[in-house]
């Protein structure tokens, strides 16, 4: 029974969202409001139950002396709520500073080990085939196409500047091809989701296709 109600609810909500194809209708706004409400309620449940109760409240209640260090994030977390009132807002800077400190350190480590070094390593390939040559020229060109500095106007600086600008111009073409590929991949994934939704309506709800 609950599955039947669920299928009907899901189908009606799907149709409410698709009503946007006719314009910004009140039906679409209702679906939007329900989506925001469900997402907010679900996120709050996970944050409270899975993180704050299981990893903070329970350890503190069971063994507050042994887990004394958890009082620090508790106090910092409560200080965050000072941000809700303008005159208390500076009190919330401390937990924000903590988050920025850890966040920037993790971002540096992640960027180094997850992006910079592996991508540079993968770019160092023998220039024996046309594909490898295009890969190296394209990678460096795409990188140079996002260059927003100018070198000092000395003769050597001017030569390097012109070379970098030319290479960056070639790299721009590679970036455009990459954008095209990303656009197509996004379109494919969205069309797949659309097919899934239409199949849900025709198979699960109306039961007109097998």
């Amino acid at each position: 029974m609950s599955d039947l109600i669920g299928v009907w609810t899901g189908a009606i909500l799907t149709l409410l969202v698709f009503s946007y194809l006719l314009g910004d209708t009140p039906l679409f706004r209702i679906a939007q409001a329900i989506f925001v409400g469900v997402a907010v309620g679900y996120a709050a449940t996970i944050a409270i139950q899975v993180v704050l109760i299981e990893r903070l409240a329970l350890p503190l209640l069971q063994n507050s002396l042994g887990n004394w260090h958890l009082f620090i994030p508790l106090v910092l977390g409560l200080l965050l709520f000072a941000k809700l009132r303008a005159q208390w807002a500076p009190l919330g800077n401390l937990p924000i500073a903590f988050l920025f400190g850890v966040g920037s350190a993790l971002a540096i480590g992640g960027a180094l080990s997850g992006a910079l070094l592996p991508q540079l390593g993968a770019t160092v390939v023998p220039l024996t085939t046309l594909d490898n040559l295009l890969l190296v020229v394209g990678t460096l060109g795409a990188f140079l196409s996002f260059r927003f500095v100018t070198l000092p106007q000395r003769p050597a600086g001017r030569v390097i500047e012109a070379a970098a600008r030319g290479w960056g111009y070639v790299g721009r073409w590679f970036v455009l091809v990459a954008f095209g590929a990303i656009f197509a991949a996004t379109a494919v994934s969205r069309v797949s989701i659309l097919i899934n939704r239409v199949y849900f309506l025709l198979h699960d709800w109306l039961q007109v296709v097998k």
Binding site: A115, L116, Q119, L120, A122, T123, D131, L134, L135, V136, V137, G138, T139, L140, G141, A142, F143, L144, S145, F146, G171, W173, F174, V175, L176, V177, A178, F179, A181, I182
Partner: peptide, 13 residues
């Protein structure tokens, strides 16, 4: 080839 090169350049930046 060109897709990877473009994305890799963006990722490096």
């Amino acid at each position: 080839v060109p897709g990877v090169a473009g994305v890799r350049g963006i990722l490096l930046g």
